[in-house]
Design a protein around this nucleic acid. Sequence first.
DNA 1: AACTACGTTCAGTTTGCACTGAACGACAAT
DNA 2: ATTGTCGTTCAGTGCAAACTGAACGTAGTT
Lengths: 174, 174
Amino acid sequence: MKSLAEHVESPELAAACLQFIESGGHTTQSFGLGQVIGQVFALLYLSPRPLCLDEIAEELGVSKASVSTTVRQLESWSAVKHVWVKSDRRDFYEAETDFKAMLRQGVLGTLRKKMDTAAVRLENVETTLADALEKSAQTGREETKVVAERLQRARQFHAKINGLLNNPLLDHLL
Amino acid sequence: MKSLAEHVESPELAAACLQFIESGGHTTQSFGLGQVIGQVFALLYLSPRPLCLDEIAEELGVSKASVSTTVRQLESWSAVKHVWVKSDRRDFYEAETDFKAMLRQGVLGTLRKKMDTAAVRLENVETTLADALEKSAQTGREETKVVAERLQRARQFHAKINGLLNNPLLDHLL
DNA sequence: AACTACGTTCAGTTTGCACTGAACGACAAT
DNA sequence: ATTGTCGTTCAGTGCAAACTGAACGTAGTT
């Protein structure tokens, strides 16, 4: 991280920016994502102009490979967007300022995907359970019904969370 | 995982339970937590009676150490609760059936903690920024104000999310 | 064509973390 | 006291994933 100190007028401002970038890295790391992705976004968020891959890599002191993959992930969440600079082959990126859209396509998007895969798993369990219910119909055991009831409640909970994620009220609250 | 097959009447029902337990493990693992924690909760959730550590460990085929730490984590989220069985020294646990409370103290609780630590970091950045603003007051540079504005917007976003997490409407939606 | 400056990819490395096994302390029973 | 059965703890292990470095493909430049 050296060029930042060159571009910024006061060392105090540079210190604040570095603190912010570091905080972003710690935050994303605490959520299981790496620390690079948070640093990249924080840097782009504070940058007054779009930056290219090499600038980001040099600024953060990480490899260009990390920045390449990270930027594409951020782009898929519409957290950063591609920007073309006239007569320059390089790819420049700038941070998305609309946090709401970022949250929708980023956090909520991945959350919805996980809910979908969980739904598939639950459906498989229910088909297996249907076999069990069918074969124990003559015996009429108690335990089967208890398990069936628990599984049904789990599905209801899943549906409730799913509904919450797609609730327009949630969008309105942001 | 062998005792389950012994306690359950039909092999189909046991298969459904195992599928459910496995699904729970996959789900928690997809969220960065291990797979054991999801399996433990799923097992306790389907179990008609409270289980002790050794039973859980043997059922899932994991070490008792994992179960010990995992159960305490689940307990801190009030996802499982301690149950005493008369004239038995062992600690028994059963699953919490109230998913709402579980979600509040589990997911939202840890989320709130992360927001708090992020808030501390943001405050540190702002004090550093205050120094920069003070020292650049005479110069009155443009860049400092831009960065200050961006940081302020970041703080506003943080406050918004914080407010959403503590919004009683969110509780009502669950 | 040769050369350079891009971005991407992939094998290799390292770091972090879930999980284990053994040792330990507590406590009850004999 | 001693033995046995609990639960917890901690150093060690294995593995997954972040990150790196070099090679590659591509496109513009001379």
